[in-house]
Design a protein around this nucleic acid. Structure first.
Lengths: 222, 222
DNA sequence: AAATATTTTTAGCCTTGACTAAAAATAAAA
DNA sequence: TTTTATTTTTAGTCAAGGCTAAAAATATTT
């Protein structure tokens, strides 16, 4: 009766499939998965057979792969654990938001009864992680916010920073230097038509943000 | 220059060697190591070759093995991490002392800059884990207490519970039911010569503790 | 010291999760 | 529709970490 526990490698593939399917609905292709995992197509094919044997995915040769109900639940649970641990690392241990990904990548694979729920209790049931990404609840239900990319704001509009679409340490560090942490308020003062860069007010300061930043920063318009 | 990180399996062997060498000074024999790891002597031999290649142990065929300086530092660091995570699980997440071993066994292998020191700060630099075992400091220095087995107390002597020598969940649960948590005060009222069992007062209660319990419970005499 | 028993190592095999190179299937272009 | 390009799978290899069975070394008895 007891299902065998997936290995960490299997879990990472499930997360990758989930992540790709989130952006690009429909079956996930082997090459896309291999790219996401930073591995070869041959390795991905091998793993897809294993995941298929364990009923975690529906896999058809040459046709791509989709998560099964069980696989989807597992992926969601991993994302939940990853994000809860990130909250722990930032809120309790005092790490910066650009330092926690690698730790959480390991911590999400810790197995055992009740750990996640106790951690969630301890953290006060946070609904978003330090990057503003939603944390699914214990039943796998997702929160969803209405947020827009900074790029879409016109001069005069104001917003609150709610998240990022690029999680790289360099981007996160840059934002921190600019005072653009989660919850920061900003106002678009001007936008340059030529390159879509924007002059913005961040609290007291003024700064110019490139299109790339505008593309990767989520805000809630106020 | 950068030394390759040991795998979790290698780390577990180092811990096991450390643990055996602690009780039984001198080189650790292959069979003892295999028994401690719950594996075959052949597997232990394989691993000893790997550890020896990585200079983590000094291994001589048929003669047994001892930890190198590097191996010893690593084992100590693992014990430090294990015990700090146990403190976290009990003090912060509210687990009972018999529930945390398996979690800590996984958490001790989490790798990354500064995690242990931040965790130690967050926990307030505890010097003992939830079972009363000492937590080495960041430099690998050990605390040592003066503690005796309950078995050595004579009627009339009183003590404070400082630790256990048996970490099995069943023993720990039994102690908890008896009110014998860390720091509990007790007094030996009588001792039966025949089987070394003792009638003790634990706070308000009275109970009879077997020789086995007396053997596995550490106290500080007051 | 020789015979026997025990411990340890070697040899050969298995699985997981990688890899490369070659083959096969599918898709796109002529 | 046939050729060419792309994607995917298969085949064969490797390292880590386990296993069993057999061989070798060490220890213990007689």
């Amino acid at each position: 009766m007891s299902a065998i526990l997936p290995t960490s490698a299997e879990e990472n593939y499930l997360k990758a499939i989930f992540k790709i399917a989130e952006k690009e609905p429909g079956p996930v292709l082997t090459n896309a998965l291999a790219a996401e995992m930073g591995t070869s197509a041959a390795s991905a094919t091998d793993m897809l057979k294993r995941l298929s044997d364990k009923q975690l995915v529906a896999y058809e040769k040459y046709r791509g792969v989709t998560l099964s109900e069980a696989g989807s639940r597992l992926a969601t649970s991993l994302i939940r654990k990853h994000r809860l641990w990130e909250v722990f690392l930032v809120d309790k241990l005092g790490f910066a938001w650009d330092e926690v990904h690698e730790f959480a990548e390991q911590l999400e694979h810790i197995q055992g009864e009740n750990l996640t729920e106790r951690l969630d209790d301890f953290l006060g049931h946070p609904r978003f992680d330090p990057h503003g990404d939603p944390i699914p609840d214990a039943k796998g239900r997702w929160q969803h916010r209405t947020q827009t990319r900074l790029l879409t704001l016109s001069p005069g509009q104001r917003g609150i920073v709610t998240g990022v679409d690029d999680h790289s340490p360099t981007f996160l560090q840059y934002l921190a230097e600019m005072g653009l942490s989660l919850g920061a308020e900003l106002e678009v003062l001007e936008r340059t038509a030529y390159d879509q860069s924007a002059k913005v007010r961040i609290g007291e300061r003024e700064a110019v943000l490139s299109e790339k930043v505008g593309q990767n920063l989520f805000v809630r318009i106020i």
